[in-house]
Design a protein around this nucleic acid. Structure first.
Lengths: 264, 264
DNA sequence: CGCGACGTTGACCTACCTCAATTGGCGTGG
DNA sequence: CCACGCCAATTGAGGTAGGTCAACGTCGCG
């Protein structure tokens, strides 16, 4: 279960039904590298990744490009639609990609029908900010080896929701060139670092799969600490977001999963 | 008028009264470099900077430190209190600092009394995320000269709310060492770059003041583009956040300033 | 007057970049 | 089934932006 799918756990079963139907109805595909949204445009839709990976990126006038973050299946691209006049970054497909695009009026209607939805999406936005902070320190302070190791750790954990101690494998859709754009490095140098990791940790990236035989070792190499992903906290966040935004709805629908809601 | 003060413009006069009284009642001072919050703690208060600057930072186990962003007077440190079990970054005073610290129950009460407050604070959080993105590309893609120039531009503009074409001066409380921690550089190298900027743009940093005789020139050097600060958009954001979180409150109190609300 | 914090300078070093060529895998069309 | 072309991965040689270390200057403050 990925981060994104947790959102589903925060909806009542009725809400989940409405939500998923809406996703299916608005599905749309993009080819590899195609832009879903470009910097400077007015946001036109709320986007949720159904399958494939998306990349947020920013480009400088002279062409230098920085990947700011990845959006994995089930996750929300951003809440810009409801916050900002013009998007300040672009979003593109990493490879072939399937997305649900919900127009503003539709989204509006959804939020009215599903009172737990807005706080749940807000949670996603807040985690996104935390991840962004981690990327900043990653690029600013770590050396190339640590950076790449950290990236691999993050992607691995985000797809499993558990910072497992052992090993395993997961999808990995980035090329070395894209990894370079993400970490502020060169494609050539990323290549050399990946080879290092192969030697030192037996990490393998092949066929769109990432294999990590010994996660703990890789995490140590990167000084990886998963707390910034705030795994296992979404229920609490939603509870608090509700306090923040819906102080008067105490009696209304709650998610059916009481265990989740009671987690600190 | 700084970013933070705009929040006031989004409240009704009654709300503003309550809000400001609450700030004054909960004021607290910190010495230079003191931590307001440390990574891993449970958030205990909603913090708003009254005077001085705060820095968000993260530290790695071996001591390397990255400043993630600055919090200027009138701005909200973060909404972590209402979102997250454990803070994922620390906050410290840049120099002597005065902060309003509002406990969770008090904040709760405030939000009930001031329905425009939560969306206004949420706006601050979202802009914070946009600034974080810009810092990521700044550190990942720009060279040292561009980075420092960009930092100066951002600080200058955030204190004036207008990307003025001419020149001027503003407060500047960072040491060169802190600038280095913020931009992923060395103190020594920052020093050399600052001297470059003195030569090429006549930029001066002295006595806690930053003087920029020709802002346009500095901005060009940094490829600085202020759109990521989303100046002039808060009214729209609050309107949309209201749509998102309070769909049923259409008849309630609105900010008195109708002109602001009608801005695209 | 002396101390501590910050700014400045110089000499040397290295992690990472640049450029350019080669290899390997894979889908496509003949 | 093979040949071609494309894209990603790989390799090598040489260059440079920025780091490291260590000193010294300077200013404000107790």
């Amino acid at each position: 279960m990925g981060l994104g799918e947790i959102v589903n756990g925060l909806l009542t079963s009725r809400e989940r039904l409405i939500w998923e139907a809406s996703l299916a109805r608005n599905a749309r595909d993009y080819m590899k590298r195609a832009d879903l949204a470009r910097e400077g445009e007015r946001p036109v839709a709320l986007r949720i990744i159904l399958a494939g990976w998306a990349q947020k990126y920013k480009q400088m006038p002279d062409g230098r490009r920085q990947i700011l973050g990845l959006v994995l299946p089930g996750e929300l691209c951003d809440l810009d639609l409801f916050t900002v006049a013009r998007t300040d970054h672009s979003i593109a497909a990493v490879r072939r990609l399937s997305v649900a695009e919900i127009s503003r009026p539709d989204a509006q209607r959804l939020f009215e029908q599903c009172p737990n939805l807005a706080p749940a999406l807000c949670w996603a936005a807040i985690i996104g900010a935390a991840v962004q902070r981690e990327w900043t320190i990653n690029i600013g302070q770590r050396n190339a080896l640590e950076r790449v190791a950290q990236l691999l750790c993050e992607i691995y954990v985000r797809q499993r929701d558990v910072p497992s101690g052992g090993g395993g494998s997961c999808d990995f859709l980035l090329t070395q060139g894209q990894m370079a754009e993400a970490m502020g490095l060169t494609q050539v140098h990323v290549n050399r670092v990946v080879q290092q990791l192969r030697l030192r940790c037996a990490v393998e990236i092949r066929n769109m799969r990432l294999e990590i035989p010994d996660f703990a070792q890789l995490a140590a190499l990167a000084s990886f600490n998963a707390t910034y992903l705030h795994l296992g906290e979404p229920a609490m966040l939603v509870e608090r977001a509700r306090m923040l935004f819906l102080p008067d709805l105490d009696g209304r629908d709650r998610p059916i999963d009481g265990a989740l809601s009671s987690a600190i």
